[in-house]
Amino acid sequence: SEFSSRSGYGEYVQQTLQPGMRVRMLDDYEEISAGDEGEFRQSNNGIPPVQVFWQSTGRTYWVHWHMLEILGP
C-alpha cells in the first residue's frame, strides 16, 4: 500500500470523495459488511463522520473514512 497508516489513507479518502461518488466498504462495521457498495452523501464533524447510502440496507448509515474504497463517480 502507498499509505503508511490508516489515518493517512483516511485523509486521502476524505480529500477525494465528492457527493454522489460510489464507494465499497473495506471492513465489517455494525450493520454494514465488507464488500457492501453505496453512494457517498455527506460528511460532518461527528463520529463516525461519513454518511453513505448503502444498497444492501436501502438507507444511509454513518461510517469512518478509512473503511471506504472509492469506486468512482
Results as ranks from 00 to 15, higher is better:
residue 1 S to H: 08
residue 2 E to Q: 06
residue 2 E to M: 13
residue 3 F to M: 09
residue 3 F to I: 09
residue 4 S to W: 15
residue 4 S to I: 11
residue 4 S to H: 12
residue 4 S to T: 11
residue 5 S to G: 11
residue 5 S to C: 09
residue 5 S to T: 13
residue 6 R to E: 14
residue 6 R to A: 14
residue 7 S to A: 07
residue 8 G to P: 13
residue 9 Y to H: 09
residue 9 Y to A: 07
residue 9 Y to G: 12
residue 10 G to V: 13
residue 10 G to M: 10
residue 10 G to W: 03
residue 11 E to L: 12
residue 12 Y to K: 15
residue 12 Y to E: 13
residue 12 Y to I: 11
residue 13 V to A: 02
residue 13 V to S: 10
residue 16 T to C: 07
residue 17 L to G: 02
residue 17 L to M: 12
residue 19 P to I: 07
residue 19 P to F: 10
residue 19 P to E: 07
residue 20 G to K: 00
residue 21 M to E: 04
residue 23 V to R: 00
residue 24 R to Q: 05
residue 25 M to G: 01
residue 25 M to W: 06
residue 26 L to A: 00
residue 26 L to K: 15
residue 27 D to S: 13
residue 27 D to H: 09
residue 27 D to C: 10
residue 29 Y to H: 05
residue 29 Y to P: 03
residue 29 Y to N: 03
residue 31 E to L: 07
residue 32 I to M: 08
residue 36 D to P: 02
residue 37 E to Y: 05
residue 38 G to S: 09
residue 38 G to V: 08
residue 39 E to S: 06
residue 39 E to Q: 07
residue 41 R to C: 13
residue 41 R to P: 01
residue 42 Q to V: 05
residue 42 Q to N: 13
residue 42 Q to C: 15
residue 43 S to W: 09
residue 44 N to W: 15
residue 44 N to V: 15
residue 45 N to Q: 12
residue 45 N to E: 13
residue 45 N to G: 08
residue 46 G to D: 07
residue 47 I to Q: 12
residue 49 P to F: 02
residue 50 V to D: 05
residue 50 V to F: 00
residue 50 V to H: 02
residue 50 V to P: 00
residue 51 Q to M: 05
residue 52 V to W: 14
residue 53 F to E: 08
residue 53 F to A: 09
residue 54 W to N: 09
residue 54 W to P: 02
residue 54 W to M: 12
residue 55 Q to S: 11
residue 56 S to Y: 03
residue 56 S to C: 04
residue 57 T to I: 14
residue 59 R to N: 12
residue 59 R to L: 01
residue 60 T to W: 02
residue 60 T to H: 08
residue 63 V to E: 00
residue 63 V to W: 00
residue 64 H to T: 00
residue 64 H to Y: 10
residue 64 H to M: 04
residue 65 W to Y: 08
residue 67 M to C: 05
residue 67 M to N: 09
residue 68 L to H: 03
residue 68 L to M: 04
residue 69 E to D: 06
residue 69 E to R: 05
residue 69 E to K: 10
residue 69 E to L: 04
residue 69 E to Y: 00
residue 70 I to H: 08
residue 70 I to D: 03
residue 70 I to F: 03
residue 70 I to A: 02
residue 71 L to W: 03
residue 71 L to F: 03
residue 72 G to S: 13
residue 72 G to N: 14
residue 73 P to E: 09
residue 73 P to I: 05
residue 73 P to M: 05
residue 73 P to W: 09
